[in-house]
Design a protein around this nucleic acid. Sequence first.
DNA 1: GCAAGGTC
Length: 862
Amino acid sequence: MKTVLMVAEKPSLAQSIAKILSRGSMSSHKGLNGTCSVHEYTGTFAGQPVHFKMTSVCGHVMTLDFLGKYNKWDKVDPAELFSQAPTEKKEANPKLNMVKFLQVEGRGCDYIVLWLDCDKEGENICFEVLDAVLPVMNQAHSGEKTVFRARFSSITDTDICNAMARLGEPDHNEALSVDARQELDLRIGCAFTRFQTKYFQGKYGNLDSSLISFGPCQTPTLGFCVERHDKIQSFKPETYWVLQAKVNTDKDRSLLLDWDRVRVFDREIAQMFLNMTKLEKEAQVEATSRKEKAKQRPLALNTVEMLRVASSSLGMGPQHAMQTAERLYTQGYISYPRTETTHYPENFDLKGPLRQQANHPAWADTVKRLLAEGINRPRKGHDAGDHPPITPMRSASEAELGSEAWRLYEYITRHFIATVSYDCKYLQSSISFRIGPEHFTCMGKTVISPGFTEIMPWQSVPLEENLPTCQRGDTFPVSEVKMLEKQTSPPDYLTEAELITLMEKHGIGTDASIPVHINNICQRNYVVVESGRRLKPTNLGIVLVHGYYKIDAELVLPTIRSAVEKQLNLIAQGKADYRQVLGHTLDIFKRKFHYFVDSIASMDELMEVSFSPLAATGKPLSRCGKCHRFMKYIQAKPSRLHCSHCDETYTLPQNGTIKLYKELRCPLDDFELVLWSSGSRGKSYPLCPYCSNHPPFRDMKKGMGCNECTHPTCQHSLSMLGIGQCVECENGVLVLDPTSGPKWKVACNKCNVVAHCFENAHRVRVSADTCSACEAALLDVDFNKAKSPLPGDETQHTGCVFCDPIFQELVELKHAASCHPMHRGGPGRRQGRGRARGRRPAGKPSARRPKDKMSALAAYFV
DNA sequence: GCAAGGTC
């Protein structure tokens, strides 16, 4: 029997589609990556009985990057990234082993049916899948078609079955347009980002962003925020005047009337109108009206609307909301949360999900009534052909979800119920009055039936005072006419919800990437989220955008994306050649780039005002080995040392603290050593600022400290302080931390293994001798007289930390505590004493003997 | 260390 391989874009879709096509009779198992499943069943294909294997990828299989050597920022001129630098496709997520997985499942298959999402990205993934699978599939008989594309617009039985019955071919042009987009985004984004970052980081010490990034989506996104900032800055308040009248409708009730002219900007004129009305004793009713109005139930929920409401009403940022929604989805509480569609498919079961909510304490009454009296037909929304709108899939309580997830789930469920509820109906009445020559109006609203606002109370029609019943010609006594002086007020900073709307309108990003772009401009410190989730640009963000405006406004305008996308669409439609469009667009941006580089001084003028030059930043810390003057330590990201005399910058390890190390110097270059520490519970090691940036020996990499230095005789080097192979990682060596006393530590120079030893020793040295059992270097320890753990009055002992029975008792293996508890390894997983002891019962040789120090070192000298 | 697009 022949085999048909079928591939969807994500595991959940593979399952739904297989369920439909196999009519529920399939057998499933997890694939080798543990994420994708394979669903198997038998059926017919091309008129013959076959075996079906339905599986999926996880989004893109491949990602585009430059060849490795072009990723060295200090060796490559960013201008080269436009054409010379070659790109390569790499596996998008090496952990998933997707190519291997596809080949294992695809080996020996006869046909392949591609069920990727029906958009350009999906078409592109089709070819990524084919590249992986075709080489291992059975060879086609002469002329027989083996590659098929299923085109579907929703995940419903009819749609999926129709797609299966009318298979087509993957569209190469659409896929090529995505290849072009990837290459453009990569080359343009990286070139500008690297240039800006290097230029400004080399000049200023307090930019407070380790990366000055540029991108065709993130930069216009920032542009929107700065545009609003500029509007606020340039706003000039204007004074205006309003007439307000009050009439008595009853003995102790009065009615506030709005002026039909709304407002005037001339005081004299307002005064004139006031004079004409204030002596009038009566207001005459000129007309009354009563209109029944409706407030429409919401459209079915899509991603961006969910994100807007999450931000504006739940105070939940888009990134966080999306993560929360994804968790609710994978746990089966809601349907797939990434969709543009606001229209339920024709045969969508609305009552099923509604019935699941019928006993929920929060909305049982509403749901039961809807089920009993009949649900309303949802409004006609937009069908983007991707996934059905977001709906609840089963009932859940706050206790089982936790408060954050619950708030989002509650909103999604209330929204869903609202879409099958009735519109809110209310009566809008108005009375028009005349006081002297001037006209005034009073409006009132009364709810006739609350409809969906019962389940979405925040949408309720606000209660307004009932208007008196009256008719044309009636009069009411005027109790007061007064003139109010007011001022126009500036707009406020952009809310996330408004930004999402702007991005959607201008086609910047997609439902899945909009939260990422917003998150990016926050992380780069271009904007900060203020109260009410409003985005206030920082000085850095403002200067960047104003700089682009000065040099080349197109770089920040939202049209930058749409213009390129127009070109890409030509490729997709087969109307333009992929190479030509790519070459042409790259050429334009290369020119823009060179112009930008040549004009950078005009952006720099703005930078100068807000930021301090490197030389004027930071505190003097350690001496330069070249000029022997003090270098300044710049703490702001990225932390570094700057010698203003030599005009050199030396980057330091991030995420830790830096101190001077006893004014000790590196024997190679005379630079004063500094001590890097990740905190009292973590590890620390000395490093030479020069060596760390210019590795002195072969096989040493940038960023290394003395604990990885292979200098044969320096007292701070790995050679002198190394003890033996790390007990956990492959290539690490345990190195004595010479600064850690009196609570001595030995730490791995690669991973975060830390051994705490000898609490009360006042000196610990690495001996030249090695252990006869395990070949690790011996430690020579002098204990405090009063607190010596040694027998008798002894204070000195030399032995192996792994094998010596006395030392074994004094060593405790841990993992360095890093800044964030999430990243903490060890103690959580492996309590207390680790492998160092646990795997070495006294007297028995260890299962994995630590290599002797010299052979561990030899590895470094290769 | 960089983009944006998939998805986990």
